[in-house]
Computed example of a mutant assay.
Amino acid sequence: MGAQLPAWIDVVDASQLPGLPGFAPHLLRDLDAVTAGLTLHWSSGSIEGAVNRIRKIKRQLYGRAGFALLRTMILLSPHSGPVPVAGPANPIEAGQ
């Protein structure tokens, strides 16, 4: 699919469809990265999910607690897989 991208950009430039002729040339700025994103089989979805989970917890605690409670909430919140954490084995004892 990534190998077909330059041909698709040429077709879009010639089509004069609204919005696409302005979008397609921006893909050429970093063609290698866009092609890799279309062809490689790995994803950063699990990392994005972890970041969103942490942001949600941070928003919930905004203005109510310090870093120690935020860290405890993040470590104790349910998640889909193991997250390696450097620090004490029991995060509750660390806050005391």
Rank of each mutant, 00 (worst) to 15 (best):
Q4C: 12
Q4E: 10
P6D: 07
W8V: 08
I9Q: 04
D10C: 04
D10I: 03
V11L: 13
V11H: 00
A14W: 00
S15T: 01
S15R: 01
S15F: 03
L17M: 11
L17Q: 13
L17S: 07
G19S: 00
G19P: 02
G19L: 09
L20Q: 03
P21N: 04
P21H: 02
G22K: 12
F23M: 07
F23L: 11
A24T: 12
P25C: 03
P25M: 11
H26W: 04
H26E: 13
H26F: 01
H26L: 08
L27Q: 05
L28Y: 06
R29Q: 06
R29C: 09
R29M: 06
L31T: 09
L31K: 15
A33R: 13
A33F: 01
T35Y: 01
A36L: 04
A36Y: 00
G37D: 12
G37K: 07
L38K: 09
T39S: 11
T39L: 03
T39M: 07
L40S: 04
L40K: 11
S44F: 00
S44G: 08
S46T: 06
S46C: 10
I47F: 05
E48T: 04
A50W: 11
N52P: 13
N52D: 12
N52E: 12
N52R: 09
N52L: 13
N52G: 14
R53C: 14
R55D: 02
K56A: 04
K56T: 07
K58T: 08
K58H: 06
Q60V: 14
G63V: 02
G66E: 09
G66Q: 04
G66D: 10
F67E: 15
F67Y: 14
A68M: 14
A68V: 05
A68G: 06
A68K: 13
L69W: 05
R71N: 15
T72C: 15
M73D: 07
I74C: 02
L76P: 14
S77L: 02
S77R: 04
S77E: 07
P78D: 14
P78Y: 00
H79N: 12
H79W: 08
H79S: 11
S80T: 14
S80H: 11
G81C: 06
P82R: 02
V83Q: 03
V83N: 00
V85G: 00
V85M: 03
V85R: 08
V85Y: 09
V85A: 15
A86I: 09
A86D: 10
A86N: 13
G87C: 04
G87V: 02
P88H: 10
A89Q: 12
P91G: 05
I92V: 14
I92T: 07
I92S: 07
I92E: 05
E93M: 12
A94C: 01
G95H: 08
Q96Y: 06
Q96I: 14
